[in-house]
Amino acid sequence: MALDATTALAGGPMTPAGGGTLRRLARRRSTIAFLMTLPLIAVIAGLVAYPAGYAIYLATLNRRMTGFIGLGNFEILLESETFRMVIWQSCFFAVTAVILKALFGFWLASMLHHIPTKGQRIWRGMLLLPWVVPPALSTLGWWWMFDPSYSSINWVLTAIGGPAIPWLGEPWWARVSVILVNVWAGTPFFMIMYLAALKSVPDQLYEAAAIDGATGWQGLRYVTLPMMRNIISITVLFSLIVTFANYDIVRVLTNGGPRDLTHVFASYAFQVGILSGNIPRGAAVSLFMFPILAGIAFFVLRGVTQRNKEMA
C-alpha cells in the first residue's frame, strides 16, 4: 500500500518495485529540467568553457608550445615597455570611450524621450544605425574621412579656415580618432538602454518631485539617475568589457600604429600571437584584463542585485 502511494505521488503508473526506480528518476522534475538544459550546457561547455580553459592553458606554455612555464609569459610581458604602453593605452581608450558613450548616450536618450512617441521611432531608427552597421565597414568609411590626402573632415576644416589635422599620423590624434569612431559606433547602444530606463521611471515620481520642490536638475539628480542606476551600471560594465576587447576599429583604422602607439589588448594580442607567431604570449595578452574585469563585474552585479532586492 505504501509503495502504491509513492508511485501515485510520483505521478507514475504502478509498476513492480525495482524497474520503477529508474522510471521514477526519469520523471522527477529536476531530472527533466537537467535533460532539457543539457543542449545549452553542452554549447556553453564547448564554445565558452573549453576555449577559455584552453586559452589559459596556452598562456602557460613556452613559445614553441612544448613546455609549461607557469606565469612566465605574464612576467615577460610586464617587463616589456611596449606592453606597459598597451595597458595604459587600452585603459585610456576604454575608460574615455565608455565615459563619452555614456554621456552622449544619455543626452540622446533624454532628447528622444521628450519627442512624442509618434515621431520618436524614425529618430530612434536613424540614431541606431552606427551601431547596426558592421564595424569593419563603417570604420573603413571613417578611415577614408581621416585619410591624409583626401580627408573630407580636413577639407571642411580648411574650408572654414581651420588647420588640417594629421588624424592617423600623429599618436595623440590617432588615439583621438580611434576613440571617436568607437564612441560613434557605441553610443546608440547606451542610447537605447538609457531610453528604456527613462521610460521605466513612472511619471508620477517626477510629478511628486516637482511638487516636493525639485527643479529639472534636481529631478535628474535625485529621481532619474538613482532610478536608472542599475541600467547605468550594467550598460557601463557591458560596454567596458566590449570596449576593452575592441579589435576591429584599431585594426582597420591604425593597425596599432604609429609606432604601436594606438595598440589595445586585442590588436596587440593579434600582432603578438598570430602575426609574430607567439601564440602563448598572445593568449597571455588577451587574458591580461580578465581578472580585473571579472572583479569589476562581480562588484557591479552584486550592487545591482542588492538594489533590485531593495527597490523592485
Binding site: 508620477q204 511628486a208 538613482p226 531593495e310
Partner: peptide
C-alpha cells in the same frame, strides 16, 4: 506651496 498624495503613492523607491 502645495503637497499632494497620489493614488499609487509615488514614493521614491530608492529612498
Amino acid at each position: 506651496d502645495i503637497a499632494m498624495v497620489f493614488q499609487n503613492y509615488a514614493l521614491y523607491p530608492h529612498m
